[in-house]
Amino acid sequence: MKTRPFLALFVSPAALAALALVGALAAILQYAFRAFVPGSMEPGGLTLANFEALLRPLYAGVFLQTVWICLITALVTLVVAYPLAYAIVRSRSVTLKSFLLITALTPMFLGEVVRTYSWIIVLGNSGFINSVLRGLGLIERPIQLMFTTTGVVIALVHVTLPIMTIMLAAALSHIDAAYEKAATSLGAGPVRVFLTVTLPLSMPGIVAGVTTAFAWTFSAFATPQMIGGGRVPMVSTLIYQLGFASFNFPFAAALSVTGLALTFAVLALAKAALSPLERMGAH
């Protein structure tokens, strides 16, 4: 065996960080099993009441709604990001490539709060979208976008767009353009080439992008909080309300733990369901 003298040196910061993370998770985990004592910051004795409360329709509904929003967001992001990634990878013009890349990636560099405020300006009743539509005479009364699921999904798509684009572009750039040329020379039109060659071969990127977008959306907070304004409850906003408005830390912890478990479960499920598709594109 090779000795690696610097291994301990390099690994120890990571190990420390991991340890801290595990510690925090353990703390949250133990909070989840403690009773809430109203008016006190200190939790009470051991109990399963927090998890029982989760089964109440109100909270279970929030979970379902969150999963639904994450799913829609991931799929819409996929549809928006795919052509973008394709153009970035296949475009011959360097200028176009850079322009698209910058457009796709800027959301990453904007702070979450700044980005969300911009969306408030765009989505508001007298915001950009509504004024344009009204200016064009397409609508008479403004479309309600703020404080709606649609508005939240639109803003969340913007959040997940960069990561999805990067993942798809990585997958697409691994597809040799010769496959598409070969299909074309064999008589397949552009749509057929896309459906039978490009799409299946990019499946690994699609699976990775969709699951990542799903997980990101599940933990998004500022966007549902500010765009949804409390009217589009998601697990993260609920945790915030319970923890910082009601100081019910045990219940907030139970929500967090369940959310985490649910994310893992959904990812595992998606992985299992999509693995035949993914294998299809493996080369």
Binding site: D176, Y179, A182, A183, L201, A282
Partner: peptide, 10 residues
């Protein structure tokens, strides 16, 4: 017939 054949891997 392409240089690296470009057989559809899937």
């Amino acid at each position: 017939v392409f240089q690296n054949y470009a057989l559809f891997p899937h």
